[in-house]
């Protein structure tokens, strides 16, 4: 029963939530924008969950952008359910829907208390074939590539859902103090979200082995490396739109292109006014479910969701506690689908 795994999920959620600084979220405070559309968001998720019941958990998982996207949306769904004062039955129904997908595919640590692993040992061996020798110069280039992809993802998907564009799988131990890591930037050209985008680089994968480096990945996609990933790089392989750059010059060209796009995308984000920013936020949240929505023929960003934030100021009914431990307790309670909401109702 997925309900039996709620304590494990809460442990992962607690670790992740305590590491986050909610004061840094932009452009809107989390509790304001998310509570504003919470009732409609739960309605949208319940419709998706109902219409995808015929899919196997693995099929559902495959229609997320990556495993972290599934985990982040689980946590945010529980919190949104608390904002919306949804029934415990509905929150548990959604918990079950997400949890089944994670339990089927990330069996070692489904909620990412510490790792994000979905590949079998055979798959890891296949991924490791053809890796090139690494060195600090390449390590630095990979860092710039990953940073460029990460910053572009942030600009495309916002501060709340950058995991759509950014995923780190691992660590897969491969002996002798070495680990294998796969980074995947699955969609760097979301035409539905930003129709004016050029048709540039769409997907980037970075495969790497490191020595004397540890990795922890939490339930909100945050990769925490300990050790030196530049000097500790032992082998690597990069794919841009499915093809390997032929040499370092082509890799540098990809970096330059992505950095320029990240800057241009951020300028586009900054130009949005208040109403446009709220609308874009809703679209970005919906984008995590676009493939699921299209699979079952429902509107990936329904008008009722957009209307929930339109022509209204941000709500101020929720006060974040001043003491950190009280704030932590509030988010923890909100994350638990069995508990009553810690928030006042939005009138």
């Amino acid at each position: 029963m997925t309900r039996d795994t709620i304590p494990e999920y809460l442990k992962a959620a607690d670790i992740c939530l305590k590491r986050m600084d909610f004061k840094t979220f932009v452009p809107f405070p989390y509790h304001q924008i998310e509570s504003m559309c919470s009732r409609e968001w739960i309605r949208h998720l319940l419709e998706i969950a109902d219409k995808t019941q015929h899919l196997t958990p693995r099929e559902r998982h495959a229609l997320f952008w990556n495993t972290s996207a599934c985990r982040v949306e689980l946590l945010m769904a529980m919190i949104s359910g608390a904002f919306a004062h949804a029934s415990n039955d509905d929150r548990l129904k959604l918990f079950n829907w997400f949890a089944e997908a994670l339990l089927a595919t990330a069996q070692e640590d489904p909620y990412a208390i510490a790792v994000n692993k979905i590949h079998t040992s055979v798959e890891v061996e296949q991924l490791r074939r053809g890796l090139h020798p690494g060195n600090p110069r390449i390590g630095k280039l990979l860092g710039r590539l990953i940073n460029a992809c990460y910053q572009l993802s942030y600009g495309l998907y916002g501060d709340y859902t950058p995991e759509i564009g950014y995923e780190t799988y691992g660590p897969y131990p491969i002996g002798k103090n070495r680990i294998f890591v796969k980074r995947h930037f699955a969609e760097l050209n979301p035409q539905e979200l930003w129709p004016e985008l050029d048709k540039g680089i769409k997907e980037v994968r970075v495969l790497a082995t490191y020595e004397d480096v540890d990795l922890e990945v939490d339930s909100c996609t945050h990769a925490i490396f300990k050790g030196d990933v530049v000097n500790g790089l032992r082998s690597y392989r990069v794919f841009v739109n499915g093809k390997e750059p032929k040499n370092e010059q082509q890799l540098q060209e990809a970096i330059d292109h992505l950095e320029a796009r990240a800057i241009a995308q951020w300028e586009a984000v900054k130009k949005l006014d208040f109403e446009e920013t709220k609308e874009k936020h809703v679209q970005q949240r919906c984008y995590n479910f676009i493939r699921l929505s299209k699979r079952v023929g429902i509107d990936w960003c329904p008008q009722y969701l957009l209307d929930s934030v339109k022509d209204k100021p941000l709500p101020t009914h929720i006060e974040i506690p001043e003491k950190q431990e009280d704030e932590d307790a509030m988010w923890y309670q909100a994350s638990d689908p069995r508990e009553p909401s810690p928030f006042p109702k939005l009138i």
Partner: peptide, 25 residues
């Protein structure tokens, strides 16, 4: 990408500057 280090007023272990600094080494 050019910086030798990053220093910020706010943030935590999983904030954006922290994540990318680790990637950049």
């Amino acid at each position: 990408g050019k910086a030798a280090a990053i220093v910020c007023d706010i943030g935590g272990l999983t904030s954006h500057p922290s994540i990318v600094s680790r990637e950049l080494g």
